[in-house]
Computed example of a mutant assay.
Amino acid sequence: MTEWPPGGSDDLIETLQDRYLPDLGHVDMPGLLLDRRLGQVALVSSFGTESAALLHYVMTIRPGLPVVFIDTGRHFPETLAYRDLLAERLRLNLVTVGPDSALLAAEDKDGDLNESDPNMCCTLRKTFPLQDALASFDTWISGRKRYQADTRAALPAIERDGAHLKINPFVFWQKDDIAAYFEAHGLPRHPLEGRGYLSIGCEPCTRPVCPGEDARAGRWAENPDKTECGIHLGPDGRFARAGRRS
């Protein structure tokens, strides 16, 4: 196994690791997802191109688990329609959250903050709402995978995300594994995938992926130094609502 990043391990993570993921040949993800030591658990989904596979997989293990979706107000209409389709088909316990309207009015009154400060735009529209939504949970489930980008190549299956534990059930899966799962379970594809969108976020900051690019190359393509939206705090992450207006 790849070593955890600094600050990325603790007694609980080590115990869970030894029990459910001692090595790549012995991965018991269903057992991990059912372990009571995870506490209160939610799955966070963007309803992107591979989300249906993770949603179906987790719901077969823990049906009724809350599924948190962050409605930033900037999603493609196709994403919202796909969310509704999957919510009905998979009978999801969907929890939709969104940004504080007063905060947006104060900080992004013209609706173009993504152009001048994309990090702050993500903070207002994604990070703040998610942290509020996760306040009553101990653990959250993410759809990140190692194959998606070089920046995720050493991603662990179990990690600390600020005060929360985070599980990445598909971390070791490859693109072909995801495709085979879709086929085996007859899952519908995101309507934008066929148009070259392999990783889908907010409409203003997402473009189709060009041949030879990694799956996340279409995210913030005009801002090469930005590779994540900011909802993943990391093992040493500290969430602070600096500058929030009441």
Rank of each mutant, 00 (worst) to 15 (best):
E50N: 09
S51H: 04
S51N: 00
S51G: 03
S51W: 00
A53M: 04
L54G: 03
L55K: 10
H56F: 07
H56M: 06
H56W: 04
Y57M: 01
Y57Q: 03
Y57E: 01
V58K: 01
M59E: 15
M59A: 14
T60I: 09
I61D: 01
P63S: 08
P63R: 08
G64R: 10
L65S: 07
L65F: 06
P66G: 01
V67E: 05
F69Y: 15
F69T: 11
D71T: 00
F76M: 00
P77D: 07
P77I: 00
E78R: 07
E78K: 08
E78Y: 03
T79H: 00
T79Q: 00
L80S: 10
A81Q: 15
D84N: 02
L85E: 15
L86R: 01
A87T: 15
E88K: 13
E88R: 15
R89S: 07
L90M: 03
L90Q: 08
L92R: 02
N93E: 11
L94K: 02
L94N: 04
L94H: 03
V95R: 15
V95I: 13
V95S: 14
T96Q: 11
T96N: 07
V97S: 10
V97P: 11
P99R: 09
P99E: 11
P99A: 15
P99C: 10
D100V: 02
S101Q: 13
A102Y: 10
A102Q: 12
L103F: 13
L103V: 14
L104G: 05
A105K: 06
A105I: 02
A106S: 11
A106Y: 06
K109G: 14
K109W: 12
K109H: 14
D110S: 13
D110M: 07
G111A: 02
G111E: 00
E115H: 14
E115L: 15
S116E: 11
P118K: 04
L124V: 02
K126C: 11
T127A: 04
D132P: 03
D132T: 11
L134K: 06
D138L: 07
D138Q: 08
T139N: 11
W140R: 09
W140H: 09
G143E: 06
G143F: 05
K145N: 12
R146Q: 06
Y147Q: 10
Y147C: 07
D150H: 12
T151N: 10
T151C: 07
R152D: 07
A153P: 07
L155M: 12
P156F: 00
A157C: 06
A157Y: 01
I158H: 13
E159Q: 13
R160H: 12
D161Y: 09
D161M: 07
G162E: 01
A163V: 05
H164R: 09
L165C: 05
I167T: 03
I167E: 02
I167S: 01
P169L: 05
V171A: 09
F172L: 14
Q174W: 03
K175F: 09
K175W: 09
K175E: 14
D177G: 04
D177M: 08
I178T: 08
I178L: 10
A179V: 14
Y181Q: 07
Y181L: 05
Y181D: 07
F182S: 05
F182T: 05
E183F: 02
